[in-house]
Amino acid sequence: MFKTILLAVDMNDLPESGHVAEAAVRMAQCEGATLHVINVIPGSGMAMVGSYLGPDQANVIKAEAAEKLTAWAAEAIPAEVLGELHVMQGTIYHEIIKMAQKVGADAIVVGANRPALKDYLVGPNAARVVRHAPQSVLVIR
């Protein structure tokens, strides 16, 4: 049913992402699917902040995140299901959906924390992925 799965992880919250990765790995193994992994670095927000940091700092942050993601994936994702690792920067839910389209994902696996009151009003990234993605989305708590 699923041939390509996109797993979204938060490298700043790896202890919480562990069970999400386990679910995605099991799903990929059962389906014989390839598992792509994405980590999105939130955008710098205001243009003024981005221009202050400069492109060199953004590249350093991205490189550090890619290194951390590679090390984590080597331990958490079996080689037989691992596709590509992707580190993007921007709006989290938008980058997840965009990457799912790019890799031809049939499903997206995301983690979700227990929602706070503000999340009911603003909406967490997982909820936005569910609302906007054309693929099936599995949300792991």
Score class of each variant (00 low, 15 high):
Glu31Tyr: 08
Leu117Gly: 01
Val25Ala: 12
Gln135Glu: 15
Trp72Ser: 11
Ile61Leu: 11
Gly104Trp: 06
Thr91Trp: 00
Leu53Ala: 05
Tyr93Lys: 02
His132Ile: 05
Lys102Thr: 06
Val109Arg: 09
Val129Tyr: 08
Thr4Ser: 12
Gln135Tyr: 02
Leu6Phe: 10
Glu16Ala: 15
Asp56Trp: 02
Val109Asp: 11
Ile96Ser: 03
Leu14Pro: 03
Glu67Tyr: 01
Asn39Gly: 09
Gln57Thr: 15
Glu80Cys: 10
Glu75His: 10
Lys98Ile: 00
Val110Lys: 07
Ala65Leu: 03
Gly111Glu: 06
Met11Leu: 15
His36Met: 05
Gln101Ile: 05
Phe2Asp: 15
Met48Ser: 08
Ala24Leu: 13
Gln135Cys: 09
Gly32Cys: 11
Ala76Thr: 14
Thr34Glu: 12
Val37Gln: 02
Gly104Ser: 07
Val87Asn: 02
Ala76Met: 08
Ala116Leu: 08
Leu85Gly: 04
Val110Met: 10
Asp56Ser: 14
Gly32Ser: 08
Ala33Cys: 12
Ala8His: 06
Gly83Trp: 00
Met88Tyr: 05
Lys118Thr: 14
Pro115Ser: 06
Gly83His: 04
Lys68Val: 01
Ser136Cys: 08
Ile77Asp: 11
Ile97Asn: 09
Pro124Ala: 15
Asp13His: 08
Arg131Tyr: 01
His36Ser: 08
Glu75Asp: 13
Lys118Tyr: 12
Ala58Leu: 13
Ala100Arg: 00
Tyr120Val: 01
Gly18Ala: 15
